[in-house]
């Protein structure tokens, strides 16, 4: 066990525990705090494989922007205790068997496809390489994303204005 695998298993355990805690809390703000731990540990997992650019982007976007949005929405809703008290489990307790089966099939397919291939190894991911891939190979995705973000701004402002009028 070298340092890389030790760090990987520490961050992997932290991410699994924090995601289970995030979806099982009763108060939304604690769920958001555990989501913060999850985002940081995923950033750590990126950094274990020396993808420092992606790890920093993860911290800036997830821990910096998305979670602040969550906290603002929870503060705006200002839920009382009565509104938060409804049971955790929805209708059937066995509905979760559907994703269990799906994930089992997916892991099985990964195991099958993993065996018997030699792996081409990439050692160091810099911002330059990722940006070049973004501008050369994924140019359509990049432009599509700009239109997508613009439409998101328009939709969000529209929904907010409608709520204000009523």
């Amino acid at each position: 066990m070298n340092l890389e695998s030790i760090l990987f298993f520490i961050f992997a355990g932290a991410s699994i525990i924090s995601s289970v805690m995030a979806i099982s809390r009763r108060q939304p703000i604690f769920g958001v705090m555990y989501l913060l731990v999850l985002g940081l540990s995923v950033a750590g997992l990126f950094a274990v494989k020396k993808a420092f650019f992606l790890s920093l982007i993860q911290i800036i976007i997830y821990v910096g922007a998305v979670l602040v949005l969550f906290v603002f929405v929870i503060a705006m809703m200002n839920l009382s205790k009565e509104e938060l008290i409804f049971g955790k489990i929805r209708r059937s307790r066995f509905l979760f068997l559907i994703p269990v089966m799906l994930i089992f099939i997916l892991i099985l397919s990964v195991v099958i496809s993993e065996s018997g291939h030699n792996i081409q190894r990439f050692q160091f991911f810099t911002a330059k390489d990722v940006s070049l891939a973004l501008y050369k190979d994924l140019l359509f995705h990049f432009e599509y994303l700009s239109v997508f973000l613009l439409s998101a701004i328009v939709i969000t402002v529209f929904i907010g204005m409608r709520g204000k009028k009523q």
């Binding site: 992606l54 990722v130 070049l132 891939a133 973004l134 994924l138 995705h141 990049f142």
Partner: peptide
């Protein structure tokens, strides 16, 4: 790198 740029997308 393409897959990593997809993560950014």
């Amino acid at each position: 790198y393409i897959s990593q740029a997809l993560v950014l997308v």
